[in-house]
Structure formats: structure tokens, C-alpha cells
Design a protein around this nucleic acid. Structure first.
Length: 691
DNA sequence: GAGCACTGC
């Protein structure tokens, strides 16, 4: 532990953090949903009044009355998410058929918070208090007064009701996360505000982001129609609410380390040897790192076990099965110290109870998008101060904790960025652009963004949408194709593929394929050897490619009677297959509603591949050399790419292929590939393949 | 012959 500098009283302590209680969207995903009825008679009301936010009830209601926008800066644990919607209802904001609505970035949070609020109000979930997420609408339009939903669902709702006229107050929670949909939502809400002066916005954010959000919503200097002397102030109010939690002591490294993996492992061992009992949460970047660290610590733990209490080392990342993830939430056995080694999933999506020590590597994997090459890649990159703070806070939930940062204080102070780059500035923007177009926003470049995306990114998105026939020369949605694509909850290239499918008589096949491609992977990870998995996959494989292979999997699954045993036997993830059925079902209804022809082409795989090509012609590649492990070049940019070894076409190397996506590692790998005929390119997209 | 941070519609 000597390598860490302990901030003393003579130097300013960087942070002392407070963290969340069980009232926030706390995300103990597998247990809390059904089991939080531990309050006696009258206990719930007392519990509500003890929350830090309760002191601010009057202030919040006053600010809401007098300001169009109120920004609540809240440490987690303040109770803002569950309480503010109730205060609003109690104060009459949900009277007269109006509805108070609150958004969350994640589905699980929506469900957890809604059921908690329903319990506190002693009403049945789905009546006065309801929620909406994809595939699940637990609201009753005439009855529901408080409604929770994901911000993505609210964006979709705007397509039918652009001014969100049902809602009196929109509360955007966790706005500091700056997800793509939150940023879009905030931009659109600002627009709506100008048309609906009576609408109130509450935006909840962590400290750092609050200022830029406040500046964004400040409309006091703008000229507004004759409302100068009445109505709410156009200048946002900011209110800080303290959280509830324990102090976390921060330790930095005295010298930088080159190998954060090794440093993390030895820090855990130091903690184990020198610190009192208490569980440890380690933040690393990804599956590889985590598996390696788990292995190293497990080996060490075996050496230690002979003479002292042991370590229980567990990995946590999204790719693990539900059962494996659940292990992390089980109570630590007596006399053991639990060490959870996690990705960013433990920073935002899941909250682990009982952590006393946090080890922060200072890195995470982040997605970046290059609009010039049109390639997305995952890169290990330094985290922001905001993230570091969030990670540290995970140590103070049940008692005072400690956070060991595997970087120096100098680095933290002078080099670590204050906040992360908003997703808007590191993503492919096609979906974003088409949604704005569908909402009638024609001047996308002039849209009032919270963080402007790069002009290159915008131009690339417009080009792609134009080449797909979704936008016309005036950059307006085409009819009917553009409007149909906008209604589909998919990547526009997949939507385009489905529409072609309906023209070619294979829409049934297209929606199945689209459902498969919406998931990460349908194959079980971790069970059995790679060889077994390859053999299982080979049972469905066809020379036409991965998409057609998925159709075979789907047929097999249906023939088995949607059996989980069948999935198990074939090393297929049963949960993923259920998801495929759900998405297919949703798309099926949608395609019918849009008036597209629903038809199956039977065994004709050529027409299926043609329909796919009509959506993905921009991903066409030609085999350059079969000797160098099958090197391909993209037609559009002459990028060197290879078929991913997980593809059924890995050994086949057809002359012409179309891929669904690229993964960038040492080289560019094409994932989900079909073999095509080059004559289809000029037939299906002549404008794109002029030469 | 090798890989997948995390959400969401």
C-alpha cells in the first residue's frame, strides 16, 4: 500500500463522495423488483420524509411554478427519481387528465423505479403509476398519471405527438450520461418549449454537466412571442440536492504504472493483506483483461488459502450469462472477501451492494466512429473525472470506503478530461438523422444541439440515407420508403433491406434476419470448447453465408417447439432466441401496419441475398487474394478487410461478399457475411456503382 | 484461426 499517497489534511482532498440508497434506480436487477416491502405500517411515509430531497419539496415546486426549466443537481441517493414525480402529482401537475412523465436511459431502471413509486403510493403498477419500455406498455391512458419510460420510447412517442401534448412535466433523469437519445431528447424538448410555454422540464444531472445543460436551456435572451410579462422565467433554475452515502477516501499512485492489469492485481492483494474486511470492486476494460485478472487472483488466493481467509474472485461483464452475473450479487460467505472484477457495467447499469474498496484502472473501452472510413471501433481510452468520481462512489454505499486509483494525482488533476465525449460525437448518425427528419426537422445541420456532431459525420449520414433512397435530393424523407424506414426501430440499412424484401417476396425471411442481426450473438459463450461450438454452428451452416445460416437456426428452433433443451444441445443461447422471437413479432406487426407485403420465398435463398444486398450494397467487398488468408477490399473505400473466423464463410472466401458490420482489432474483420453476385450491385444500386 | 465496453427503439 505504500505506493499510494494518502491525501492528508494539509492538501485538498479531491473528493468526498456520497452515494445512493435503495430509492434510486439502483439496479439490483435480480432481486429487488419483487422484494422491497420491508416497511411497517406508516414506515413508507416516514422513509419518504427522511430522504434528502424531502427538504427541498417546497423549493422544487416553487421553482417549477416559476421556471420553464429546472435543473436538479443531485448526488445519487437523494431520492429525486422516486420522489419528485410524486411531489408533482401531489401539487396538481397531473390533474385534469395531464400526465407527469420521467425518462430513464435503461429499461431496468424504468421498471424498478416505477414499481417502487407504485408501492409508495399504494397503487397497482400499471394504473395510476405505469411504465413503457420496448415490448412492454404498462400504462392505461385514462388512468395513468405518473409514467416512467426510456428516453428512446419518448422519442418514438414524439412521432405521433410531436409536442408531447399529454404531458405537463417532462423529467429527464440521468442527463449527465449524455447518451445519443438523451441529447436528441433535450434538443427536441427545447424546441417544444418554445411552442408550449406551459410545459415544464426537470433535468436531473450530476454536478459537472449541469452548467452546460443550464446554458443550453437558457432562452431568456431570445426574442419570444408576447410572453414577456407573464409565464415562467426562461432562465433555468438550478437546485442542488445532497445525496446520502459515506465518505470515500481517495488514494492515488505515487508513480505511474505501465501495466494497469498487474497493478490492479497487486493492489487487490495489498488490500486483502492490509485492510479490514470488506468487498472489493475492480474496474478494468473488457473480457480479456477481466478473465486474466480473475485467473491471476484465483491462483494467488489458492496460495493464501492455507494460512488465512480466502478471496472469492468473480468476473462481471455483459457477455456473461445471467446465472454467471447473478453470482456477483449473492452474499459474501463468512470469512471471505469478495472481489468483483468488472467492466463499466458496474459504473452505470448495475449497483453492487456492500463494496468497501474500489480499484480504478482509469481506463474503459469506448466506441469511436470515423465518418471518413465509416468504421466504428472499440478502443481502450482514459476515463473522465466524472467517471472516476462515479467509480469511487461505488465504495461508499454501506460504510465509509476507500478508492485506489491506478494513476497519479498529477495525471488526474492536469490530464484527465473533465467529462467524456458525448455519444453524439462518436457515433454513426444515420438513425439520429432519420428520426429528426421524421419529426419534421429539415435543417439538421442547423439543429440546436447540446453537443454538435461533426459536419463530416452529418454529411456521411446524409449520403448513406440518400444512397438508400430514404432521403431525396432536397434531403427530405422519400415517400413511402423514407417514412416507412423512420417508423422501424432498426438501423436504416436493415429497414431498407426489409422493404426490399417485401418487394421481392421474402419479407418474412427479412424480418427474421433483421431480428438476429439486432443481437450481439446467439451462440453460447464459455460452455464447451471452441471446437464444439464450431461443430454446432456447422450443423446449420450453408455456403450462401451467415444470414441464411440464421434462417436455418430459426427453422430448427421452431421445429423443436421453441425448446430450451434444443438450444442447450446446439450451444445456442435460449434467452437470445426468445429475444429473436420478440423482435420478429414486433417487426411483423409493424410491417403489416405499414402496409408492406408479408410473404415468404420458401427455399429461394438468392432472392433473400438480393434483398439483403439492396440494404447493404455499401458494404460490398471483392476478394483480392486468397493466399493471404482471404484478403478482401471494400468497393467504396478500398479498405483491406477479412472475413471473421466466426463466419461460416471463413474458409469459403467467395469472390464477392456483402457484410453486415466490421470489427476492428488488429485488422478489420467482417462479421455476418453473405456471398453475392457482382451483377446484383448495378442492378440494385446503379447510382452507387456507376463505374 | 479469433473476438465482443454499454445502452436503446
Amino acid at each position: 500500500m505504500s505506493r499510494f499517497w494518502r491525501p492528508g489534511s494539509e492538501r485538498p482532498q479531491p473528493s468526498s463522495l456520497s452515494v445512493l440508497e435503495d430509492d434510486e434506480p439502483g439496479f439490483l436487477p435480480f432481486s429487488t423488483l419483487a422484494s422491497n416491502s420491508s416497511y411497517g405500517y406508516g414506515g413508507l411515509e416516514r422513509h419518504r420524509q427522511r430522504l434528502p430531497v424531502f427538504k427541498y419539496r417546497t423549493a422544487i415546486l416553487y421553482l417549477l411554478e416559476t421556471h420553464a426549466t429546472t435543473i436538479i443537481v443531485g448526488e445519487t441517493g437523494s431520492g429525486k427519481t422516486t420522489q419528485i414525480p410524486q411531489y408533482l402529482k401531489e401539487a396538481g401537475w397531473a390533474d385534469g387528465g395531464r400526465v407527469v412523465v420521467c425518462t430513464q436511459p435503461r429499461r431496468l431502471a424504468v421498471q424498478t423505479v416505477a414499481s417502487r413509486v407504485a408501492e409508495e403510493m399504494d397503487v397497482k403498477l400499471g394504473e395510476e403509476v405505469g411504465y413503457t419500455i420496448r415490448f412492454e406498455d404498462l400504462t392505461k391512458s385514462a388512468v395513468t398519471r405518473i409514467k416512467f419510460l426510456t428516453d428512446g420510447v419518448l422519442l418514438r412517442e414524439m412521432m405521433d405527438d410531436p409536442l408531447l401534448s399529454k404531458y405537463s412535466v417532462v423529467m429527464v433523469d440521468e442527463a449527465h450520461e449524455r447518451s445519443l437519445s438523451t441529447d436528441m431528447l433535450l434538443g427536441l424538448l427545447k424546441k417544444i418549449q418554445r411552442r408550449r410555454p406551459e410545459l415544464r422540464l426537470i433535468i436531473s444531472s450530476a454536478t459537472i454537466e449541469a452548467k452546460s445543460i443550464a446554458a443550453f436551456f437558457n432562452q431568456s435572451k431570445k426574442k419570444l412571442p408576447a410572453s414577456r410579462d407573464f409565464g415562467p422565467s426562461r432562465e433555468p433554475a438550478i437546485l442542488s440536492v445532497e445525496g446520502r452515502g459515506y465518505d470515500v477516501q481517495i488514494h492515488f499512485l505515487e508513480e505511474p504504472v505501465s501495466n494497469y492489469l498487474q497493478a490492479a492485481v497487486s493492489t487487490v492483494l495489498d488490500i486483502h493483506n492490509q485492510e479490514p474486511m470488506g468487498d472489493v470492486l475492480v474496474f478494468l476494460t473488457g473480457q480479456d483483461d477481466i478473465d486474466a485478472a480473475v485467473q491471476m487472483l484465483t491462483d494467488e488466493a489458492q496460495n493464501l488459502a492455507a494460512h488465512r481467509s480466502g478471496l472469492l474472485v468473480l468476473p462481471l461483464y455483459a457477455g456473461l450469462s445471467r446465472a454467471e452475473q447473478e453470482l456477483v450479487f449473492s452474499p459474501t460467505p463468512r470469512g471471505k472477501r469478495k472481489v468483483v472484477i468488472a467492466t463499466n457495467i458496474a459504473e452505470t447499469s448495475l449497483t453492487l451492494e456492500g463494496m468497501v474498496y474500489v480499484v480504478d484502472s482509469g481506463f474503459s473501452k469506448q466506441r469511436f466512429y470515423n465518418p471518413i472510413t465509416d468504421i466504428e471501433s472499440l478502443v481502450v481510452a482514459p476515463i473522465s473525472k466524472a467517471s472516476a468520481r462515479q467509480r469511487a462512489g461505488r465504495a461508499g454505499r454501506v460504510r465509509p470506503g476507500k478508492c485506489f486509483r491506478l494513476y497519479t494525482e498529477e495525471y488526474f488533476e492536469s490530464e484527465m478530461p473533465l467529462e467524456g465525449i458525448p455519444e453524439m460525437q462518436r457515433s454513426n448518425l444515420v438513425s439520429c438523422v432519420i428520426q429528426l427528419k421524421a419529426l419534421g426537422i429539415d435543417n439538421i445541420l442547423g439543429f440546436d444541439w447540446l453537443a454538435s456532431p461533426s459536419p463530416e459525420g452529418m454529411i456521411r449520414a446524409l449520403e448513406v440515407l440518400y444512397s438508400l433512397g430514404i432521403l431525396d435530393e432536397d434531403s427530405k424523407l422519400t415517400s413511402p420508403t423514407g417514412f416507412q424506414v423512420a417508423e422501424m426501430p432498426l438501423d436504416p440499412m436493415l429497414s431498407r433491406m426489409i422493404i426490399s424484401g417485401s418487394q421481392f417476396g421474402c419479407s418474412e425471411e427479412m424480418i427474421i434476419i433483421a431480428a438476429f442481426l439486432s443481437l450481439q450473438s446467439i451462440w453460447v459463450i464459455g460452455r464447451g470448447t471452441q471446437k464444439e461450438l464450431d461443430e454446432a454452428k456447422q450443423g446449420f451452416a450453408v455456403a450462401e453465408g451467415d444470414h441464411i445460416t440464421y434462417l436455418n437456426v430459426y427453422k430448427g428452433f421452431l421445429l423443436s417447439g421453441k425448446s430450451s433443451q434444443w438450444c442447450h444441445k446446439n450451444l445456442i443461447n435460449y434467452q437470445a432466441m426468445k429475444k429473436v422471437l420478440e423482435i420478429r413479432e414486433q417487426l411483423h406487426k409493424l410491417v403489416q401496419r405499414l402496409g408492406l407485403v408479408l410473404k415468404s420465398c420458401g427455399q429461394d435463398t438468392q432472392v433473400v441475398r438480393k434483398a439483403i444486398t439492396s440494404g447493404f450494397f455499401a458494404h460490398a467487398c471483392r476478394l483480392e487474394s486468397s493466399s493471404h488468408g482471404g484478403m478482401y477490399k471494400t468497393i467504396r473505400t478500398s479498405q483491406e478487410v477479412y472475413i471473421h473466423p466466426s463466419s461460416v464463410l471463413f474458409r469459403v472466401t467467395p469472390k464477392w461478399v456483402v457484410y453486415h458490420s466490421l470489427v476492428s482489432t488488429d485488422c478489420q474483420y467482417m462479421r455476418n457475411v453473405i456471398a453475392v453476385d457482382s451483377s446484383w450491385f448495378t442492378e440494385l444500386a446503379p447510382h452507387f456503382f456507376q463505374i
